[in-house]
């Protein structure tokens, strides 16, 4: 309990630091959002002073000294008020993010967890059956698949399963005609559309988990407590899972935490290739269009989710490893 509280304290502290950094970093950059918007406009002809004033009024020019701005910013963060997007004007940034978020969290989140679980199980099996085909096949296959760039896998799947095979849709998160509602047909439609992006992420991330778990477990299999458990005649399955795998998984949890934190950042390229309207897609558009309010909100959200994911993994670590609970 004390351990969890201490970790919670650390989380709040780093959250504050991240939020503060997110405030100061853009202010260190030269220029302002208004300058950027005007620069964009001036490509079509000279911009009058009145237009400039109007744009500045629209986007909001910071008033008061830095400290007042900071306090104001904190209030906005707490109320999730990140202003108005340039790209999707006049949509509010918070609305855009909240629309995109579920797509990414569900798609990438589920796939990440799935990849971790499946990869770890295969890794355990490979290590336990070391030297047999159950080891060689996933190990070789894992390194082979994880060597591919994932956007390339995405393109391959898109081409063969989408354009050539017509097995799955080639873009979007749902059919254009589908009505968003909580019904079987709509959910089935969502899953149908998410299959190819999910498969892409699964294929490319699985190998890493397999190899990581296999190698960690090969190490724990050589540990004395495993030999001693065998000497005591425990059943093979108990030795493999409760002794070897149970200890081997600990270092992999850290990687899992990072991967979970990365979920919200989305898989930019995958979402881009499949035209999937998630956070990654949004982020790409924000960056291309120099949409500062949207970018700031997205970066903040990604940072926060990485921190929270790490916090959760820390807590999990505490539960799984008595040595960290001190």
């Amino acid at each position: 309990m004390k351990y969890a509280l201490r970790k919670l304290g650390m989380l709040l502290l780093t959250l504050w630091a991240a939020v503060t950094l997110n405030f100061f970093l853009p202010r260190l950059m030269p220029g302002s959002p208004a300058d950027a918007a005007i620069a964009k406009l001036s490509q079509n002809g000279p911009v009058s002073a009145a237009t400039r004033a109007a744009i500045e009024a629209q986007l909001g020019v910071p008033g008061g000294n830095l400290f007042e701005q900071y306090v104001h910013y904190l209030q906005q963060v707490v109320t999730l008020d990140f202003g108005v997007s340039f790209t999707f004007y006049p949509e509010k940034v918070s609305d855009l993010v909240l629309t995109a978020l579920p797509y990414t969290v569900v798609l990438v989140g589920i796939v990440t967890i799935l990849a971790f679980v499946i990869g770890t199980l295969i890794g355990v099996l490979a290590a336990w059956k070391r030297g047999t085909w159950l080891d060689t096949l996933p190990t070789l296959g894992g390194s082979f698949l994880s060597a591919f760039p994932y956007f390339w896998i995405a393109l391959l799947l898109l081409f063969f399963a989408g354009y050539v095979g017509h097995l799955f849709p080639t873009s979007g998160a749902s059919s254009p005609t589908a009505v968003p509602e909580f019904s079987f047909s709509f959910i089935a439609d969502l899953i149908y559309h998410a299959t190819l992006p999910a498969l892409t992420i699964l294929i490319t991330s699985l190998g890493g988990w397999i190899l990581g778990m296999r190698n960690a477990m090969i190490n724990t299999l050589g540990d004395d407590y495993v030999t001693f458990a065998e000497a005591n005649g425990l059943r093979g399955r108990t030795v493999a899972i409760k002794y070897a795998a149970r200890n081997a998984i600990l270092p992999n949890l850290t990687g899992f935490g990072l991967a979970l934190g990365g979920v919200v950042g989305g898989s930019i390229l995958v979402e881009q290739v499949y035209g999937y309207p998630g956070i990654g897609y949004l982020l790409y558009n924000a960056v291309v269009n120099q949409d500062y309010p949207l970018m700031q909100a997205l970066f903040l959200m990604i940072t926060v989710s990485v921190l929270i994911a790490n916090f959760l993994v820390d807590i999990l670590y505490g539960v799984l490893d008595p040595r960290t609970r001190r």
């Binding site: 540990d223 004395d224 407590y225 005591n232 425990l234 108990t238 149970r246 200890n247």
Partner: peptide, 19 residues
């Protein structure tokens, strides 16, 4: 090092009894 660091001593005994 002959004991599993993430299991209590009691569980070590139970594992053997169960096996």
């Amino acid at each position: 090092n002959a004991l599993n660091p993430v299991r209590t001593i009691r569980k070590h005994f139970h594992d053997i009894f169960r096996a």
